[in-house]
Every structure is written in C-alpha cells, then in structure tokens.
Computed example of a mutant assay.
Amino acid sequence: MSHESQQQIHEGGCACGAVRFRAVGAPIRVGMCHCMTCRRVHGSAFGSYAIFRRDAVAFTGSTREWQSSEQGRRHFCPACGSVAFMMYADRDEIDVPLGAFDETGLFEPAYELWCIRKEPWLPRGVRPEYDEERTR
C-alpha cells in the first residue's frame, strides 16, 4: 500500500459543481481571516481556510484569477463565482475555503487573522488572535 493511499482524501468544489478539488492528507494549518478582502469575497464576517501544500491539492474545471494583494492570487469559478482557492506567489501553499469541502466539521481553525477588522459581536479569545498577519 502506498503512502498516499493511507492518507485521508477530502473532496469539495464550487457551488455549481464546475470546479472540483481533491486534497490529500492533513492541512499544514487552519485559520480564520477577518480582513476586508476575505469579508467581501465571502460576503460574510470572515473567511475560513485549510492551508495545504500546493502538491497536496488537485483541481478539475477552469477558474479565473485575480490579484487580491501584492502576493495573493484568488481563483474562483467563472460560472457561479464561488471562491475555489487562494495562492501566494511567495509560498508553496494553497488556501482552500472550509465551506467548499463536501463534508462539514473536517477542520477547526487554530488561529484568527486581521482581528482589527473582527466584528464586535463575534466571541473573543476562542483561539489565538492576530491584529493583522500571523507571525511565522
């Protein structure tokens, strides 16, 4: 049995099903982001992501891309507009939105970013919070 076949496979996709993904193994980390871009992209108070190595996630279907920050590139389904994933030019990582997975409850965020933008009605102190980006 190969090493890959022993690892869990998590699948998901966009709202209309035109873009699908398969993530192998556990994410590097899982976090929540309250930055204005994540808020606007998700149409919600925050975005939640499972961050994997790029080679651990494979996509089918075509996406469109836009530059959301100096290093960040967000990919989305051109048919329904759902966020498919985010990559950074300077990191070997891919951020997959938790809401895009077929199963719920797979991963729990371990930290929160951009808490200077966090809604006051959200609970504080549940997990480590960073005013802006997380320190490495």
Rank of each mutant, 00 (worst) to 15 (best):
C33H: 07
R29A: 04
R39T: 06
R73M: 10
G17I: 07
V41G: 00
F85L: 01
W121I: 00
F59C: 09
A26T: 13
R134W: 13
R134Y: 10
E70H: 12
A79F: 07
H3A: 14
M1A: 14
G72M: 09
E132F: 10
C35L: 08
P78T: 08
G47N: 06
R73W: 03
G72V: 09
P109V: 09
G47Y: 06
A23R: 07
S5L: 13
S68A: 14
H10W: 11
R54M: 03
L106C: 11
M86V: 09
C38F: 02
Q8S: 12
D55S: 13
Q71N: 12
R127E: 10
C115R: 00
R117I: 00
S68W: 03
D131S: 11
W66M: 10
F101K: 06
G17Y: 08
E93H: 09
P78S: 04
R124V: 09
G12I: 07
S69P: 04
V41I: 11
T63C: 15
F52S: 03
A26H: 08
A84L: 06
G25E: 13
V19Y: 12
Y111E: 04
E112S: 13
Q67T: 13
R73V: 11
R53C: 01
C35G: 07
G81M: 08
R64W: 09
A58P: 00
F46D: 02
R40L: 09
F107P: 03
G61C: 08
G13S: 10
A84M: 13
C35D: 10
G99D: 07
P109R: 08
F101T: 06
P97F: 07
Q67N: 11
R124D: 14
G81L: 11
G99S: 11
H3W: 03
A79H: 14
G43I: 03
A79G: 03
C14Q: 10
I116Y: 04
G81N: 11
T63Y: 02
M87Q: 15
Q67R: 15
V41K: 04
E132T: 12
D92P: 12
M36R: 15
L113F: 04
E129R: 00
R117V: 00
C14K: 12
R20N: 10
Y130A: 07
P78E: 05
A58S: 15
R127S: 03
H34K: 05
P78Y: 08
G31Q: 02
E108I: 09
E112W: 00
Q7T: 01
F101I: 06
M32F: 01
C80D: 12
Q8I: 03
R39S: 08
E112G: 00
P27T: 05
S69C: 10
